[in-house]
């Protein structure tokens, strides 16, 4: 007991002696995280400041009386409701329509008897995952312009051809459908491998019991991949309020902000294009805090339900 501080020193010394190489190896990693993850977190203080780059984060004066002026401005503004609503709408509709798509694709691929055909289809379905967003969005814009192939196809059903990205009511559909198109194949990989892990004897006994193909799907296949489905669902829910800016920036235009502008694109415009540092950091912080709470919640839930977590 008397030698407590001495023994702590000894423990440290022993640790360093034994692992100095390992610490030296991890040093650049630690420096990276400090410089590029934790230093920006310190930059969050800007949200409470009237920031000027010359004065720096610390030197800039607090904004308003309590430093909360940026938040007061944001919550009181017309845009608060709009970008919150758009974020929720785009995220939820991506989830509702997008989440089942890879599961259905995997189930149907699983029914394909010809192995070669199955593999080829699968490989082709991943392709959009590897194409740049710039190109994908460029193609979307061409295809939904008034002479674009998608617009013209809709015209066959009596739809008046117009530039679909010029009308705010179509943006959510374009966003969600193109997400499904680009992500469906890649996301199905996980379910396919879960499917291949199902014990074939279960199918055998189901057949002996007289179960048809559809009944086998309901009673054997779906229960067999339900754990994977739950895990993926919880992970998706964890990023519910996290709608990325890259794709939207590439697709939207001023005319459709009404449905296309989300929190992250708003932050991008106000912060990086207009230079309203404090205000945009405040909006970004609002989003980060919500994300943090949501992801923590669903991570807990997932650990409880499926014994799986992000960490």
């Amino acid at each position: 007991m008397k030698k407590k501080s001495g023994s702590l020193g000894n423990v440290l010394k022993k640790d360093m002696k034994r692992y100095w190489q390992a610490y030296l190896m991890v040093l650049p990693v630690v420096v990276f995280y400090l410089l590029f993850s934790y230093k920006p977190m310190y930059g969050i203080l800007i949200a409470f400041k009237d920031y000027s780059p010359a004065a720096g984060v610390w030197g800039s004066p607090w904004v308003g009386r309590h430093g909360m002026q940026n938040f007061i401005d944001f919550f009181g503004s017309y845009y608060f409701r709009r970008i919150l609503k758009n974020t929720v709408v785009l995220s939820l509709s991506s989830l509702v329509f997008g989440f089942p798509a890879p599961i259905i694709l995997a189930l149907l691929l699983n029914e394909v008897k010809n192995e070669r055909f199955k593999r080829v289809t699968q490989t082709i379905s991943y392709l959009p995952h590897f194409i740049s967003l710039v190109v994908i969005c460029g193609m979307i814009k061409m295809f939904v312009a008034n002479t674009g192939i998608i617009t013209q196809f809709l015209g066959l059903f009596g739809f008046q051809p117009t530039n679909l990205l010029g009308k705010s009511q179509y943006f959510p559909a374009i966003y969600v459908l193109s997400n499904i198109w680009a992500g469906m194949g890649w996301d199905s990989i996980l379910y396919l491998s879960a499917l291949s892990g199902i014990d074939q004897d279960l199918y055998e006994s189901a057949r002996i019991d007289g179960a048809g193909r559809w009944q086998q799907t309901i009673h054997v296949t779906l229960p067999g991949i339900s754990a994977t489905i739950i895990i993926m669902l919880l992970m998706r829910l964890g990023s519910l309020m996290n709608v990325g800016y890259e794709k939207i920036i590439l697709l939207y235009n001023e005319g459709i902000y009404e449905t296309a502008d989300v929190i992250s694109t708003f932050v991008y415009r106000y912060g990086l294009l207009n230079g309203q540092w404090g205000y945009s950091v405040a909006v970004g912080l609002f989003n980060s805090v919500i994300n943090f709470i949501i992801i923590l919640f669903f991570n807990r839930l997932s650990r409880k339900l499926a014994d799986v977590s992000l960490w």
Partner: peptide, 29 residues
């Protein structure tokens, strides 16, 4: 398994998956 600071460094890395400074502070950085 052994290093004393392993848990601290692990936490430091994992935490960044949950929370970040956001776009604008990263840009200014």
């Amino acid at each position: 398994k052994g290093p004393l600071f392993k848990n601290a460094i692990t936490f430091m890395i994992i935490f960044t998956m949950y929370f970040s400074g956001g776009l604008v502070p990263a840009y200014l950085n």
